[in-house]
Structures are given as structure tokens and as C-alpha cells.
């Protein structure tokens, strides 16, 4: 179970990333953030966000148009 959940459904670039960044700020190192999004571009963007910020993308999946991500703050 993630420490925090972010509902980014219905939002488009760059809002899911900006909201995720804000949410991660309030977490402690090692804690996790679960994100739900509907922006298809978010799949590449969250992987790229984690690459560039040093956080870990623990999981990424998609089901009927909704994208699920879990990010660990490092």
C-alpha cells in the first residue's frame, strides 16, 4: 500500500508531473506515491521524470485507459 495516492485522471501534460512532484515533496525518503492518470503521454513522462529526478518507478501499468504508477522517493 502506497503512503500517498494522487488522482491525476483527466489532467494533461504537464499537470500530472507537476502534481506528482508536489506530492513527493511531502513524503519522506523511502515512502511511495501511487498515481492514477488518463493522459497516455504520462507513460513515457513518468519514466523520464524518475530517470531525471533519481526517484524509483516501482511499477507502471495500464487498464482500460487508466494508467497506474508507483514511485518511491529517493
Amino acid at each position: 500500500m502506497a503512503n500517498m495516492t494522487l488522482d491525476a485522471k483527466g489532467l494533461t501534460c504537464p499537470l500530472p508531473i507537476l502534481r506528482a512532484k508536489k506530492a513527493l515533496k511531502s513524503l519522506n525518503i523511502g515512502e511511495t506515491l501511487a498515481i492514477e492518470a488518463t493522459d497516455p503521454g504520462s507513460a513515457k513522462d513518468f519514466a523520464s521524470f524518475c530517470n531525471q529526478t533519481g526517484n524509483t518507478l516501482l511499477s507502471a501499468s495500464e487498464s482500460v485507459g487508466t494508467y497506474f504508477y508507483e514511485i518511491q522517493k529517493n
Partner: peptide, 11 residues
């Protein structure tokens, strides 16, 4: 603005 806010989120 999109690039600026995104870049800021990437520190």
C-alpha cells in the same frame, strides 16, 4: 510555460 513548469519540477 509548460516547459518552464516541467523543468522546475525536474529541479
Amino acid at each position: 510555460l509548460i516547459l518552464a513548469t516541467t523543468a522546475a519540477a525536474l529541479d
